[in-house]
Amino acid sequence: MFFSSHVPFFRAVTAVQSFRMFARLSEWYNRPTLGSLDLLAEGLTAALGVEVYPPGAHIPNKLTIHDISRLSHSMMHIYNGEERIVVKFQAIISPGERRDVDITPGKKWTEMKESVRNQFNIHNVDVKFMSGERELQHFSDFENLNGAIVDVIQQPQHKYKLDPSLIAKKHNYNFTRKKDDRTVYTRGNYQYNRPYGWFRYAVAVKNVYGDDNTWLGSRGKRRIQTSDGEWPVSYHGTKMKNKGGFFATQTNIDESKIIDGVYSSPSLDIIDELYAEEFVHNRTKYKIAFQNRINPDIDGDHMKIISKQHTCDGAEYWVSPLEDQENKIYDVRPYGIIIKKIKTDNNPQNYTQLG
């Protein structure tokens, strides 16, 4: 009687345990893995503000390294009190919503569009300008429109496909289980802060900028010292561009130290804290940021340094004032995309903001 009365209970407990074990194994098997292209596509969608689909999607446009640069770079524009108004017009984006807009000499067309998007607080769409039935496509189109009303038309997001050829998979590296052992690494004669705790997708950049790949340095596992002609490593996150960015965190910065150009930092800690974009994939939260090589030619004005003594957050920033894709000046070259898991939670209510 003792054994027969307890066997059904024992079997019931075993069945429940088996079900739970199966559920956990199923969840483990189907978990998003660091290194997967599906995860990367979701992260790039959050970071770049465009729709990036995983491989296999029927999307004609393949995401390129130049798209990543164009969509993620944080261009800052400071005029230092110089005379800058050539044409002032009123931009209307919807009934009752209008802004005064200045046309600035010496700036690119894409930069003027970015200025308008910032004024209207729209960042994930392209815009075009219409005067009546005529589309305004060049600065010269505005010459006779001083004080006029110009319609700002929002255009749909671009869609891209993440092609496997964008990633040099054999150079991916998992830093999630690596610990900082206080070894000092250098790249381009500057300290290189390895992305401990992150998974790095290596972008296929070899020969993208010409046959000379010296800027990448020599290959080798756990290489500590820099090699001749190598460029230093910096990081950037797209919150530097899309959410007020650098200047929102530098309220007390000396204006004389602010420089026009693309901003990044050798400090991954500050990018993680302030600028890395968050996203959710399969009910798990992640952060995404970009790892760059920077042209270190200070004498030629390709690189300027804002020391940590002049920033509110105590981090050093590097500025690349001559970066200009339109004229094939590539001083900021993303060569890695880094992602890390920041939280796992089974409560779906915690994901409504990041969805």
Score class of each variant (00 low, 15 high):
267 S>W: 06
164 P>W: 11
348 P>H: 10
261 G>C: 05
44 L>N: 02
188 G>D: 01
251 T>D: 11
261 G>N: 07
355 G>V: 09
211 D>N: 15
182 R>P: 00
270 I>P: 01
345 D>I: 11
185 Y>T: 00
42 E>K: 11
123 H>T: 07
203 V>E: 05
336 G>E: 05
76 M>A: 01
27 E>W: 05
158 H>E: 12
341 K>N: 06
85 I>V: 11
137 Q>M: 11
270 I>V: 15
273 E>Y: 06
4 S>N: 07
295 N>R: 04
138 H>S: 14
332 V>S: 01
143 E>I: 07
90 Q>P: 00
310 H>P: 00
247 F>M: 13
78 I>L: 07
309 Q>D: 12
239 K>E: 14
160 Y>R: 08
41 A>P: 07
146 N>E: 14
94 S>W: 04
94 S>K: 14
276 A>G: 04
151 D>H: 10
131 S>Y: 15
35 G>W: 08
306 I>T: 05
277 E>I: 09
268 L>Q: 07
34 L>D: 03
70 R>S: 10
324 D>M: 10
346 N>D: 13
218 S>V: 06
2 F>V: 02
221 K>I: 06
317 Y>M: 06
49 G>Q: 10
319 V>C: 08
107 K>M: 12
123 H>Y: 12
220 G>Y: 08
342 I>Q: 06
121 N>L: 11
245 G>V: 02
149 I>V: 11
288 I>R: 02
258 I>L: 15
1 M>V: 03
184 V>T: 09
79 Y>S: 07
324 D>W: 13
182 R>Q: 05
97 E>P: 00
259 I>F: 10
65 I>R: 02
305 I>F: 02
117 R>I: 00
77 H>I: 09
197 G>W: 04
323 E>A: 05
